[in-house]
Amino acid sequence: MGRYVVRRLGQLVVVLLGATVIMFTCLFLVPGNPVGPLAGDAKASDPVVASQLREHYHLDKPVYEQYAIYVRNLATGDLGEDFVQRRPVTEILGPKLVNTGELALAAIIIDVVLGISVGMVGALFRFGVWDILTTFSTTLAVGFPTFVTGFLLQKFFVVQLGWFPLLSQGDLQSLVLPAFSLAILDAALVARLMRGTMLEVLRADYVKTAIAKGLPRRTVITQHVLRNSAIPVITYLGISFGLMLGGALITEAIFNWDGVGLALVSGVQEQNNPVVLGVVTYGVAVFVVLNLVVDLVCAALDPRIRFE
C-alpha cells in the first residue's frame, strides 16, 4: 500500500506539470496584451512603461522560459504576482479557497446524508410508496439545472419568506441556500446510484446465504449490503467533491459567493494569467489527491481491492 501511495503522489507531480503546460500554451496563444491591465489604458501605450512591465513579469521571455520560472516558483509555493492588484496570488486566493471549501464541504455533507438516505429507503422498500416518492423526487431534481434551482430557492426563501439574506454575508445563514443549490442535483444522482447498487447487492448470492443462515436483517444490511453498495457511491462523491472544490461558478455567481470560480472568471476576463494558473494548479492538485483518498477508502471497504 505504501508503494502505491508514493507512486500516486508521483503521478500528482506529472499531472500538475501536464496541466500547467497546457494552460501556459493556451494563455500564450490567446490574443491580447496583458500589459494593458497592468499599466492601465493610458500608460500601456508608453513603450518605456510597457517594456518595464513586461520585463518585471518576464513577459518579454519565450513561453518556455516563462514556464520554467513558474515551475521553479511553484516548487516553493509561490504562484506569482497578480497583474491587477499587484499582490501575491496565494494571498488573493487564500480567502477564496476558504469560502469555496466551506461551500463544498456543506454541499457534500448534504449529498451524503440526503442522497444515501433516500437511496436506501428506495431500495429497501422497492415498488412501495416510499420508493415511488423517492424515484419521482430524484427524477424531478435531476431535471432542474443548478442555476434554475438557485433562482427558485432565492425567490421562495429570500424574496417571499425572507428567511435568508439575498447576498452572502459570510455567516452560516448565508451558507444554507448556496449549499442546497449546489447539492440538490448531486444528492438526487447519489440517491439513484445508491438505490440501484443496493438492489443489485441485495440479489447477490452472499446476501441470500447470509439471510438463509438466519442473520438479523439489520446485520445483513449494515455488514454486507451497505459496505459493498458504498463503493461506487464513494467514487462518485469523491469526483463530485473535487469538482465543487475546484469552484462552483454558477452557484457562486447566483449567491455572490466570493469563491474560486468567480476568481477564475475574473482572471480570464482581465487576462490575469497568474490567477488563472493558480486556480487551475489548485484544482488539479485537489482532484488528484481526492482520487487517491477515494481509492484508499474503497480498498478499506473491500479487502478484495489490491493495488500491488
Rank of each mutant, 00 (worst) to 15 (best):
L292Y: 08
V280Q: 02
V280Y: 02
V289Q: 07
P274V: 03
V280W: 01
V288M: 12
V275C: 08
F287N: 03
L296H: 11
L296N: 11
V293E: 06
L290G: 02
D295R: 10
C298V: 09
N273D: 14
V286R: 00
V289E: 08
A300C: 10
A300Y: 14
V275L: 12
A285T: 13
G283Q: 06
L277P: 02
V279H: 06
L290H: 03
V276G: 10
V294T: 08
V275G: 05
V288W: 13
G283W: 02
D302N: 15
L296F: 12
L277Q: 15
G278M: 13
Q271S: 13
L290V: 13
L290D: 01
Y282I: 08
L290F: 08
L277M: 15
Y282W: 14
A300R: 15
P274W: 05
A299E: 04
L290S: 03
L296A: 11
N291T: 04
L296M: 14
G278R: 10
D295P: 11
V297Y: 09
Q271N: 13
N273T: 10
F287G: 00
A299L: 04
N273Y: 15
L290T: 03
V293N: 06
L292A: 06
V276M: 13
N272I: 00
G283S: 15
L296K: 10
A299R: 08
V279T: 05
N273M: 14
A285K: 01
T281V: 04
T281D: 00
A285S: 15
N291Q: 12
V294H: 01
A285R: 01
V280T: 09
F287T: 05
V276T: 07
V276E: 06
